[in-house]
């Protein structure tokens, strides 16, 4: 019985299938809101209100011809999309969806999440580097610069949450918020803002979509990918979008916890999770809509001049808050 339930948890809910479907839903919400901001319609014809359009795109890409450049480093080039998906799906499991803890939960899983984000950047670098073509090379170079700029504020803002709740375990942070109020109402508000900016960069979305800036370096590090591999990369990036916004909801908005009668928790918590995550996604999409892309040197200067001092200030504030 235990085996069946944990298999169900791992593969169906809140496991792989749930997250993959959620990633398609997120792409749809993102595209639809972005289109509405620009007075366009957005996806429309596939499924009700175009809900199935991301899935249709995925299937279309899978059917397309899959090319590997002649001079690429084939082993790395071919394995990166798979590794990206595997990494994202694994790290998703620490997210609490239906209760205080996720499918897997252990002391230090916050650090695991941070490590996964960094690993994702390194995979991007490998993807660009193994393509052996000028645009992906520039894209990979830019991705690493982006990592240099935004990893530290990201880690420090997460550290603020850990210090506030006194734990490096996701479930502990969630339960601390359930008893002490959400992290966003307190000294973590600044941390929340920094976190949102940093994940916007981590997700490579406008204004920080520098590694795959279409007008400058075509598709950046993804230029040489096509067919199945591109489909997997797109899925991994959507999963990353889900993961980042869910992490923001977990760390700052109290995770899936909320007011619910005891018998309804099984349904109410996933609904709360969805609502909070989509709320974060909406903020991210609005940021995407109202800015122009910054240049890489401006971006690094912005991160080191403003974000990193601010995140140190935020950690110091949290420490003082905790001592009082």
């Amino acid at each position: 019985m235990d085996v069946i339930s944990s298999t169900f948890q791992l593969f169906i809910f809140p496991g792989f299938l749930f997250f993959i479907l959620l990633s398609f839903l997120f792409e749809w919400v993102d595209r639809k809101l972005y289109a509405a901001m620009q007075r366009r319609i957005g996806p429309l014809y596939t499924g009700p209100l175009g809900l199935l359009q991301p899935i249709a795109d995925f299937i279309k890409l899978i059917k397309k011809e899959d090319l590997t450049p002649k001079y690429s480093d084939k082993k790395i080039f071919n394995s990166v999309p798979l590794l990206m998906c595997a990494l994202m799906l694994t790290v998703m499991l620490i997210l609490p969806v239906a209760g205080e803890s996720g499918v897997i939960s252990f002391t230090g899983d916050v650090i695991f999440a941070i490590a996964a984000m960094t690993l994702f950047c390194i995979l991007i670098f490998l993807a660009g580097f193994s393509s052996m073509s000028p645009y992906p090379l520039l894209g990979a170079e830019r991705a690493v610069l982006l990592l240099l700029g935004f990893e530290i504020p990201l880690m420090l803002s997460i550290a603020g949450c850990c210090i506030a709740s006194g734990s490096i375990e996701v479930s502990a942070i969630v339960s601390w918020q359930a008893s002490h109020g959400w992290n966003i109402f307190g000294p973590q508000l600044l941390g929340f803002a920094i976190f949102l900016v940093a994940i916007q960069a981590e997700l490579e979305r406008i204004p920080f979509d520098i590694p795959d800036a279409e007008q400058e370096i075509v598709a950046g590090w993804m230029t040489e990918y096509s067919g199945r591999k591109l489909a997997l990369i797109r899925m991994a990036r959507n999963l990353e979008l889900v993961f980042m916004s869910a992490l923001a909801a977990t760390l700052y908005l109290g995770g899936p916890m909320g007011l619910a009668p005891h018998w309804a928790e099984g349904i109410a918590f996933p609904v709360y999770f969805l609502l909070k995550t989509v709320a974060i996604l909406l903020i991210l999409t609005i940021i995407r809509g109202i800015f122009a892309r910054v240049r890489i040197d401006q971006m690094v200067a912005f991160a080191w001049r403003y974000l990193i001092p601010l995140s140190f200030l935020q950690v110091a504030l949290t420490l003082i808050w905790r001592l009082i």
Binding site: A36, M37, Q38, R39, R40, I290
Partner: peptide, 11 residues
């Protein structure tokens, strides 16, 4: 952008 969300679609 906020105003555009409320306006009818141009497409």
């Amino acid at each position: 952008a906020c105003r555009s969300l409320l306006k009818p679609k141009a497409t």
